[in-house]
Amino acid sequence: MKVLEVVKLGEKLKQELRHSFLSNGRQESVAEHTWRVGLMAVLLTPYVQKEVDVAKLLKMIVIHDLVEAFAGDVPAFDTMHDAAAKEQKIEREMASIDRIRDMLGGALGEEVRALWLEFEHKETTEAKVGHALDKLEAQIQHNEADIETWLPIEHEMSFRMQPHVEFDETLTLFKELIEEEAEQKLTAAGIDTEPLKQRAKR
């Protein structure tokens, strides 16, 4: 069992940068994103309609980005309309979680891999909540960053969060607050949001 090695692997997530910027202009790390998704889980799960195993949810959140220590971070817009790129991402991440499982070995390695897969499949309540929070946090961070750091595709993506939250009323309401902030930011920058909303519905 190589727990210390996997803990040290987590340090790579402090170095791995996402396509998101902080309000002070610095680029965000994967570790920073993961931490705030965990914070959102603690603060929002008491209001989610279905019962949530918070300990399991937090495990999933901590684990799900760990594969990026090997596979790197791939922005959602890079695979959104590219089936080949999406398949390559899946293959790299599967190889990464298998590698992490083998590093840990035994029951712990299998548990970590199973939690990662559960998150990816988005079928259980915990996986659905974790996936929704992951998407919502990303948009919150965009809202906090300078609009000049946004790519044009991210203007439209601000209005594509509904499918991730529609299973829960609380998360839907939270999404609407985040979406409203995004719309205000885009409008203030002179960007017409109506065409973006229409394209997002397709």
Rank of each mutant, 00 (worst) to 15 (best):
residue 81 H to E: 06
residue 22 L to S: 06
residue 145 A to W: 04
residue 107 A to H: 12
residue 27 Q to I: 14
residue 153 I to L: 02
residue 151 L to Q: 03
residue 62 V to L: 13
residue 177 L to Y: 10
residue 7 V to T: 13
residue 19 H to R: 08
residue 54 V to I: 14
residue 188 A to L: 08
residue 93 E to D: 04
residue 36 R to Y: 11
residue 164 H to G: 14
residue 44 L to N: 13
residue 21 F to D: 01
residue 128 K to R: 15
residue 99 R to N: 12
residue 19 H to C: 00
residue 12 K to C: 07
residue 153 I to G: 05
residue 4 L to V: 04
residue 27 Q to N: 12
residue 87 E to R: 10
residue 77 F to I: 09
residue 70 F to P: 02
residue 123 E to M: 11
residue 81 H to C: 02
residue 29 S to V: 07
residue 27 Q to K: 15
residue 186 L to N: 12
residue 70 F to Q: 03
residue 128 K to L: 11
residue 53 D to N: 15
residue 150 W to N: 01
residue 136 L to R: 13
residue 176 E to C: 11
residue 61 I to Y: 06
residue 15 Q to T: 14
residue 25 G to P: 09
residue 27 Q to L: 11
residue 149 T to L: 04
residue 37 V to D: 03
residue 51 E to C: 04
residue 103 M to Y: 07
residue 94 M to S: 14
residue 52 V to M: 05
residue 198 Q to F: 06
residue 64 H to S: 03
residue 199 R to Q: 01
residue 27 Q to E: 01
residue 63 I to T: 03
residue 189 A to C: 10
residue 15 Q to M: 15
residue 135 K to R: 15
residue 171 L to M: 02
residue 27 Q to S: 14
residue 155 H to P: 04
residue 84 A to N: 10
residue 29 S to E: 06
residue 190 G to V: 04
residue 163 P to R: 02
residue 195 P to L: 05
residue 156 E to H: 00
residue 90 I to H: 12
residue 50 K to V: 09
residue 23 S to Y: 05
residue 155 H to N: 13
residue 190 G to H: 05
residue 162 Q to T: 10
residue 24 N to V: 13
residue 102 D to T: 09
residue 71 A to W: 00
residue 153 I to P: 01
residue 81 H to L: 09
residue 53 D to R: 10
